[in-house]
Amino acid sequence: MDALSIKALKKRYGSGLEALKGITLDVKEGEFFGLLGPNGAGKTTTIGIITSLVTKTEGTIRVFGIDIDEDFSAAKRLIGVVPQEFNFSIFEKVEDIVCQQAGYYGIGRDQAQASCEKYLRQLGLWEKRRTTARELSGGMKRRLMIARGLVHEPELLILDEPTAGVDVELRRGMWDFLEKLNQKGRTIILTTHYLEEAEQLCSRIAIIADGRIIENSTKRELLKKLDRETFVFDVKANNLQIAPLEQVSFTPLDDTTLEVTITKGRSLNLVFEHLGRQGIEVDSLRNKTNRLEEIFMGMVE
């Protein structure tokens, strides 16, 4: 069954701005789905419509088969949302924010508190439960919103740029958390600006630009479209003026670092030999984690 099925969704604002120009999208149950796109492409509008914060102009949305026009309440019970911007009262305590959210879903106090404890512990916020939200760090605020989005145990979790402004270590921790949630059977939809994040987490990716879906396929299929790969070399050399090599481009980043882009199918050995001939020794190399970024930039530009 599709966890989410969007058909010909359009949104025209009063100002005349057409934010969505007919989006059709299916997310299968259990999928980890990535929705990528530049700022203003329509990602947040789409999520807004699914969660009732934005009213649609045209189109249909079904959540686990339930049409939101027929029974939005039933659909809402199945959705948990973690928005892009902080949208809790900064004067309230962490546990109050989470427990109240359960209350809005009609969950009794005891069950709400148990669920609140479960997620605050999992997200490392239990010690902060009596702290008012304004005293939390940025990363903690993000995790608070994740706990709040999960407290009613939704089948479908929608996260709108959940790791924006979160440091690397914490981001990895959040990835682990989300991967585990998905492995336990929750469908997850994620929008992100960090393409590395989408590459790490999502099994299927859609790209939205200017209110339209311009790509929708599995991550594997998408990465196949990539015809180039970029590496970063740490090198020892007196001079990084490198003679050209066919189907390879060299960009020195500083005196000891070189970015090398190779067309797929070209051997790395050729590159090493070419550099060796010019007295450049390669100490180490790493794959630049921007594979999706390259595809993405190619598509939206």
Partner: peptide, 18 residues
Amino acid sequence: FSTKFQKNIEEMLVSPTP
């Protein structure tokens, strides 16, 4: 107004609260 201003009105709006 402050619930609207801080956007936490969204907590209620996304829920099935009538």
